[in-house]
Design a protein around this nucleic acid. Structure first.
Length: 402
RNA sequence: GGGCGUGUGGCUGAGCAGCAAAGGCAACAGACUGUAAAUCUGUCGGGGUAACCCUUCGUAGGUGCAAGUCCUACCGCGCCCA
């Protein structure tokens, strides 16, 4: 039942893994054939899962496929407190309703990666709510303020004079106690979680449990090269439409292609090595990136959608043809000032924006084979049925005359 | 509780009493291409054909022809002292 194949174990321990504490011990546990309890804490702040958050999920899947028990801790209580470790600023406190709604959607999305039915799902309010000041005080005694404030992201904030709330101090305690409550053998998390993950070990020792081993995955860069994070808006979301997802991945910087293959897919490592060699040998990165985009779309939307997304992308961006689905704008007005038209069709938000775009050469009308670039923002266009208005490379509207 | 600071457009960060407000990031458009990559260029509060008008610099008042810029109060945040 438990897979103890050394190669499999090696992959679990190394693929997309930045650091393992304590690696030898974990390796031993994996080889023992014992069912391990592998914990992942889920932060319910954002209802949208992105590729960065899918990385630990994939790692969990590796464990799950090897026969281990996955324990998902839903931070309904911690979410209300707010984690501080991957943020440069304070987290907002969430109200309970939001947490519940977010979690439902989370489990749904996580189900695309994990076999949820086989997972243990626990809400940490169950045990955290009951802790009193006495107990918390004792727990807190395991940590020093010095440790806490010497964390890079905290000290940075302190140096720059940004507020650090006392409640943030409590967070590692809570996450750590989660590990105690579920008797975790292993915990997965991003490198930014190191402090919290280690807190788990410390508290487990305090409660006379064997400390969990820790497996940390690197953080992945988002579309703009900064760390992928919902608050930056540079994410590829699991719920993105296939076309959108495909396009977003195509807009990734070339240098992240291999990293994404390793972290966000489960394409075999040998294959990825091949791609890497090809890239180094001067193969067009675009072609490899297409494979990446297709693979990722396939994981979340299935193969058929992945193929469709590729076709669509090629059509619109390579061959500069029209996309398949174009939003329709119905009107009975035949003569339209271009600026008004752009605003009314919601292609732009204001007339000033329309003006800028037209002057910048970003607006085109297409009627069959006839394309006309509009350069005067005061121009009055004569609309015809199924005329297409194109703004930039990606925005289209089809006119329907009533 | 006291003292001293600080609060600017999506973010960051300049700002002298006469600015729709420097710079950077992000975003958008154009050229190029291998793509929504890279690079280069341009734009980046709203309205008007235009002259021009309106809205914005934590909140509320005040001084002054004129206020992001000075004064007062309040709120948030920081530092120091208690």
């Amino acid at each position: 039942m438990i897979n103890t194949d050394p190669n499999k174990i090696e992959e679990i321990l190394t693929r997309g893994v930045e650091e393992v504490i304590d690696k030898q011990n974990l390796e031993k546990k994996l080889k023992s054939g014992k069912v391990l309890r592998v914990k992942l804490g889920i932060d319910p702040t954002s209802p949208n899962l992105h590729l960065g958050r899918a990385i630990p999920l994939l790692k969990l899947r590796d464990f799950q496929l090897a026969g281990h028990k996955i324990v998902l801790i839903i931070g309904d209580f911690t979410g209300v407190i707010g984690d501080t470790s991957d943020k440069d600023s304070e987290r907002p406190m969430l109200d309970e309703k939001t947490v519940k709604a977010n979690m439902k959607s989370y489990v749904n999305q996580a189900g695309k990666v994990l076999d949820i039915k086989k997972c243990e799902i626990k809400y940490n309010s169950r045990w955290l709510k009951k802790l009193g000041f006495g107990e918390i005080g004792k727990q807190a005694d395991n940590f020093s303020l010095n440790e806490f404030i010497s964390r890079e992201n905290i000290s940075k904030r302190m140096d720059s004079g940004t507020r650090v709330s006392l409640r943030e101090l409590l967070y590692p305690l809570m996450q750590g106690y989660d590990s105690v409550a579920v008797k975790a053998d292993v915990e997965i998390g991003g490198t930014d979680q190191k402090f919290n993950l280690l807190a788990g070990r410390q508290l487990q020792r305090y409660y006379k449990q064997e400390p969990q081993d820790i497996l940390m995955n690197p953080l992945v860069e988002g579309l703009d090269g900064r760390k992928m994070s919902s608050s930056w808006g540079n994410t590829v979301n699991l719920l993105d439409s296939p076309t959108n997802m495909f396009g977003k991945i195509m807009s990734l910087k070339d240098e992240y292609i291999i990293k994404y293959f390793v972290l966000a897919t489960r394409i075999g490592m040998e294959k990825i090595k091949e791609y890497e060699t090809e890239l180094k040998a001067g193969k067009n990165p675009r072609d490899i990136k297409v494979l990446l985009a297709k693979e990722i779309v396939k994981m979340y939307h299935g193969e058929k959608e992945a193929n469709k997304a590729e076709e669509e992308f090629n059509k619109v961006h390579r061959d500069k043809e029209l996309p398949t689905d174009i939003p329709v704008f119905e009107t009975d007005k035949k003569n339209y000032f271009i600026a008004d038209l752009l605003v009314d069709t919601k292609l732009v938000l204001s007339k000033n924006e329309a003006k800028r775009l037209v002057e910048g050469g970003g607006v085109e009308t297409i009627l069959g084979e006839k394309k006309e670039r509009i350069t005067d923002w005061r121009k009055e266009v004569v609309l015809e049925d199924s005329m297409i208005i194109k703004v930039g490379n990606r925005k289209f509207v089809k006119i329907k005359l009533k």
